[in-house]
Every structure is written in structure tokens, then in C-alpha cells.
Design a protein around this nucleic acid. Sequence first.
DNA 1: ATAGTAATACGCAACGCACCGTATTGGTGA
DNA 2: TCACCAATACGGTGCGTTGCGTATTACTAT
Lengths: 191, 191
Amino acid sequence: MPNQRRGAPRSESARLAILQATASLFAQRGYEHLSIEGIAAEAGVSKQTIYRWWPAKSDLVADCLLDGMLLPSRLTIPDTGDLRADLIAWLEQLFQLLQEPDGRGLMISLIAAATANEQIGGRLRDSLGGDSSLAARLATGVEAGQLRGDAPVTELGEALVGAMIVKALSGRPGESADAVRLVDALLVPPD
Amino acid sequence: MPNQRRGAPRSESARLAILQATASLFAQRGYEHLSIEGIAAEAGVSKQTIYRWWPAKSDLVADCLLDGMLLPSRLTIPDTGDLRADLIAWLEQLFQLLQEPDGRGLMISLIAAATANEQIGGRLRDSLGGDSSLAARLATGVEAGQLRGDAPVTELGEALVGAMIVKALSGRPGESADAVRLVDALLVPPD
DNA sequence: ATAGTAATACGCAACGCACCGTATTGGTGA
DNA sequence: TCACCAATACGGTGCGTTGCGTATTACTAT
């Protein structure tokens, strides 16, 4: 028998306001300058209501990332049937994002958040290139005969995302030609 | 003839004490919990002496990294003449470092510092896999005929280091087999 | 040579500010 | 009734800045 809950249930509007305020301030100021007090003020909520449900700032950001409130949707990898073209187009999208100041700031902030919470690192990896989207796209390429059957899709995905992260961190945004070179270096066509 | 300096010269002992205190506290507590006041106390120096010479905490860390006070020396890539074996051995060293809690903490802290200062990102990239050591080692491999002449050494270096960073951030330390798979996926032998 | 002056670096102490994480209080709704 | 909520207050930490007194060094006028 389910223990009958006593008292008022959790306020969904407060929860949403907190998540939206977090996403908004994260996009505006970045992870470093994100404060619980600022989020509470922006959301019209008391600090306690945040501390009651999230143990730390990083967990709050992790929830936002999980709900897809932080990453632009254009960063998902397409599937036109041509693996090489899809990968190049996807990387070019990412590199273009890094060339916009706000875009680079967003990526840097996501990396900073990931250093504080490895759940965020995992989600970032998965959202961009990890076991979900990118690795799945690579697996599709294997099935289509565009990639060797024994190609380590997980490692390749991490290498692609990692190369982008290194470019973001070192402030050397990639150009279109870099995307082509990188993909051609990693993608060994089947014999 | 530039105007000869007047007044007391900068204290070299204070400068060294500050850098060493920074490196020590960085290794102990990580970048997040590094405070100027803590560094000043540890170095036996007043805060102003730090603020006089370094505009921000991240610049202080960048100087430490430049002086090689933060990275273990075992992370430089060897050169035995066998490129594949060297790369695998180097990656295994890195993965092993990430499996020690302190080692992972160090790497995470370096990444966190890099998000605050792109000079640090550049230095981290260069120290590990960028234009200096790793790319040079790859270039040597090209000369030795172990790598295609048109191999994009810079992109490959970024991909290798990036893959390691993704593993560090997502808390999935690599194993020896992963190192082998990654190197074999990236290294296309010449025809 | 020998003072005096200017410029600079230093340690020490204190300030106002922002944010942290934790109470406490009183209101409200299931 | 009792969990949730907003509001408010609290002690603590670190920030970046400022003012003070004191060395240390080079320039300059005697």
C-alpha cells in the first residue's frame, strides 16, 4: 500500500520556473557566473525551494541539460544515407557554433559544468557524440557498408567530440576544411 | 635608451613562493577550490603582491602550467621509432593516470582552468598533444613512413587528446584495449 | 661624497560586496 | 494536519580594492 502522501504536492510551476531561469541565466552569463540566488530571483522563488530539491548547482544544470534546455537542437547529427557527408556537415555546424562568441561561450560553459559533475560530462558526451546519436549514426554507416565492420564506433565518436572540445578550449575554432580533414582521417572506408 | 627603472625591483622569492603555493594548492584541492587568499597565506605573501602581478587566478595557473609545475613529466610521448607502439603506450599512461582518483582530479582541474582561460586551453593542448610534442611525434612517423604523408597531424593530435578529455569528463576511464582500438582506428598505415 | 627626493615593491589591515548554505517564520492548499 | 512555499535573517568565505607604513633602488642637487 502506498504511503499516503500528506501535505501539499510539489509545485510544478516552481520547478519549471527554476529550470527555465537556470537555462536562461546559463545562456546569458555562463556556468561560472551562475548563482543560486540569481536563479531564485529570476524564477521568483525562494532559495530554500531550490536547495530542497537539488543538492548542488551542478545537479540543477544537469537536469536542464537532460531536458534539452541548454543545447541548440541543430547539433544533432543528420542521416541522409551518406555517412561522410553527414559527419562533415555536423562538424561544420559545430565549428560554426564555436565561431559565434555566444556559441563558444555556451560550449565552454557546458565543459565547465561537466568538470563539476561527471553526470553532465556523460550527458554532454551522449547528447553530442556518445552512445546515443553519433555512435548510432556511425553504426548505421557500418550497416550501410560505409565503415569497416570492426570500426570502434564509441572511440570514434569520442575522438570527434573531443577534437571539437579541444578546439573550443584552445580558442582555435575549426574551419570547414578542418572538418573535412578530420573526418577523412578518422573514417577508413571498407576494403 | 629607455628610462632606467627606479625603485625596488620585483622580489624573485615572492614570485617563486606564489607560483609554488599555487601549484601545491592546485594539486591538493583543484582549481575550483583555489583562492587567492589561500595562495597568499600559503606563500607567506600579501594578497596585493599577487594582484599586482596577475590580473586573475587563471593567469596565475597559466604561468604555473607554462613552468611545467602542474603536469607530471611522464605524460610526454616517447619516441622509440615505432609510432603505433609509442602512441599506445602514451595513451595507456594517460588512461592509467585517469584511473587514479588524484590523477583524474588533476586532469579535471586542468580542464576547468582551461574553461576560464583559453591560454590554458592552448597550453594544455600543446603540452599534451598539440603542435609541440604529439604533433611532432606524428610528423616523425610520417618521415619514417609509418603514416601517410598527407595525414593531418594537428587534427589527429587534437582527436587523441580530445578523446582522453571526453573520457575524463564523462568518468569513463579508458582501458588498455581502448587505447589500442583508438590508435588503430586513427592511424592509417601508408599504402 | 652625501643628503634629499621620487618611484616602486612589500606586508598588514580593513572595507563593501556577492554568494554560500542553513535556519526560522508565517501563509496556503491538499 | 502537514508538506510545500516565500520571505527574511544569519554566519561564513572569498572577492577585489584601498590606505597605511616601511624597504629598497635610482636620480639629483648640494
